[in-house]
């Protein structure tokens, strides 16, 4: 039946895409809400309390405010580039979301619904390529603003993301060696077959990935591109209204994508904890999507927790850390992993 082609490649992906486009902005609003709340609790404050019970309607009020603001471009800005830069970041963020395997597939009305919208066999590679494009958005936005703080922020973001991308890629490579595949769901399957999460094989890689991930998404303590205390707001100083909110959406999408990638690579994606232990099989009734959301949610919380804890790094410290520590350690990690795989293969066949 040629209907399957239509449903598999057009209708179901389209529905999932629309669902993500509809749900995700709301989700980001509530991530910001949780961020404000958690930061407030860390500082013994209450956080937003006025709009709705416990301030729960605050994100909606904020969104309405942002959407009704005037769309301003500075007089000497390069208007076309200025206007297109936030859109690039947003598109990149949403594209990244499409690659995350969010749960096992299920059957709905006789159709197979796969919860990874795009499952290509080079998923990790594609995700890395897409995520590194986000630097363009920041540089374009910072440059087109024609103002000194955005420009400084843009230059910093370019340098920072390039340096940390190297360490990130080497770290991921070590995991890919273990999995033997570049497909996101393939990596999860490999972890299922191996019977353990790769965090137990790659603890160093896991820590490196977390740190590089924070640097990649420009979050504290590595938020130099937007360092509020020095650069006002970094590359989006001149933005307001919904273009500003595009930058925020893109940044939080990047956080979710990076957390999702981390969960897929090291924590077994949407699998339940200890997938090979029979004793825990009573957990199987919980759908994989729940586990995925829980794990990603934890890392989103972790991002906020870091922000509430650490002061910002100095720029030279950041660069020194990146080039002198993370890159050598990640290369050593890759080397040792490769060696261990060869030795294991030759000993155990």
């Amino acid at each position: 039946m040629n209907n399957t082609w239509l449903s598999d490649y057009v209708i179901i992906p389209l529905i999932l895409i629309l669902a993500i486009l509809a749900i995700f902005p709301l989700l980001v609003g509530y991530i910001v809400y949780v961020e404000r709340k958690v930061l407030a609790f860390i500082q013994s404050r209450l956080g937003p309390m006025r709009v709705g019970p416990y301030g729960l309607l605050q994100p909606i009020a904020d969104a309405l405010k942002l959407l009704t603001k005037e769309d301003i471009a500075p007089r000497n800005a390069d208007v076309f580039v200025f206007k297109i830069a936030p859109i690039i970041l947003l598109v990149i963020g949403f594209t990244g979301l499409a690659f995350l395997p969010m749960g096992e597939g299920f059957e709905l009305f006789g159709y197979d619904v796969s919860l990874s919208i795009v499952d290509v066999n080079v998923g990790v590679l594609f995700l890395l390529a897409i995520m590194s494009l986000s630097t363009y958005s920041l540089v374009l936005g910072g440059w087109a603003s024609n103002s000194k703080y955005p420009l400084l922020g843009a230059l910093r973001s370019a340098a920072q993301m390039v340096s940390y991308e190297v360490a990130l890629t080497f770290t991921i490579l070590a995991t890919l060696l273990l999995a033997g595949t570049l497909s996101m769901s393939g990596i999860i399957d490999a972890q299922r077959e191996a019977g353990l999460w790769y965090i137990f094989v790659q603890p160093v890689g896991f820590v490196l990935f977390i740190i590089a991930m924070v640097a990649e998404t420009n979050r504290l303590p590595f938020d130099l591109p937007e360092a509020d205390t020095e650069l006002v707001a970094g590359y989006f100083t001149e933005y307001s209204g919904f273009r500003w909110s595009f930058f925020m959406l893109g940044e939080y999408a990047a956080m979710v994508v990076m957390s999702g990638l981390l969960v897929t690579l090291y924590l077994g994606g949407w699998m339940r904890p200890f997938p090979n232990v029979e004793l825990l099989s009573f957990l199987d009734f919980i759908p994989g999507f729940t586990w995925f959301v829980l794990k990603v949610g934890f890392f989103i919380y972790f991002f906020i927790w870091l922000r509430g804890t650490y002061p910002r790094y100095r720029y030279d410290q950041l660069m020194g850390l990146g080039w002198k520590v993370f890159i050598p350690v990640s290369i050593a990690n890759l080397f040792i992993t490769a060696l261990a795989i060869i030795v294991m293969d030759s000993v155990f066949g």
């Binding site: 958690v38 609790f41 013994s44 209450l46 509430g308 650490y310």
Partner: peptide, 20 residues
């Protein structure tokens, strides 16, 4: 770094001081 994280985690669950 872990000491720092532990401190902020403890404060997250302490009663807050805000008077509304």
């Amino acid at each position: 770094l872990i000491t720092g994280l532990w401190t902020t985690l403890r404060y997250t669950f302490k009663p807050n001081v805000t008077v509304r």
